[in-house]
Amino acid sequence: MTDEPISPRIDVRELTLAYGAVKVLDTLTLPVERGKITVLAGPNGCGKSTLLRAIRRLHAANGGQILLDEMDISRLKSRDLARRIGLLAQSPSAPEDMTVEELVRLGRYPYQSMLQPWSRDDARAVEAALAGTGVVHLRGRNLGSLSGGQLQRAWIAMVLAQETDVICFDEPINHLDMAHQIECLEFVRALNVEHGRTVVLVLHDLNLAARYADKLVFVKAGAVVASGSPSELMTETLIEAVFGVQSMVITDPVHQRPLCIPIRNAAQAAE
């Protein structure tokens, strides 16, 4: 551990993003530390997904900048950016008759050039991705024949094959059942713990966010309201301010993380 402050992996500085006249993100500042799991949480429409997408440069900023390893991402070429930040989209789709292997191979797109179609590196990365997500035995299967959990793993394998240091996940568990939700998040954690990837995650479920985050970020109305460890943020007052819910916060006896029990809608309580 050095004494110098480590620069954040991704540095969002005063980011403003607007759709027409509506400001979705307003001079938002957020440093994302390397090698940690950062979870963005907040009420509907707060801009957390937009922020994630902006980090992956899917939206152009109207103001401010986003730095990746101190380099402005708007200056990077698409290929380079795709080699450094991967994204699992919220509702990804692919033809049903595409095979798992074909899907995972697409993750190598940013490494292919016209002259060099398919290298040994590409093959190795694909094999590693398939093995890492445990879908090697599914490689020849059509995507349409997979279960929800298997399909999610196939998509994660594709993102893995991109071999990026930073991986973003946009609400990856919304459509999964409980068992697969846990499986998915455990896998994300393993990516971080065992492979040192920086993970930025948007989650709807506050408790799961608290359980898996190294750093938790509350977003509301296009701005960062608070960021810190889950235990710092998961207070009843803050939760009510951000989510509009009166709750009780206890400690999850299994994971030793804060657990929020919603009691009532704060707006109704005020009536």
Partner: peptide
């Protein structure tokens, strides 16, 4: 792929 994922791979 869907647009987001396509752009995600560059």
């Amino acid at each position: 792929l869907d647009e987001t994922s396509a752009r995600g791979v560059g």
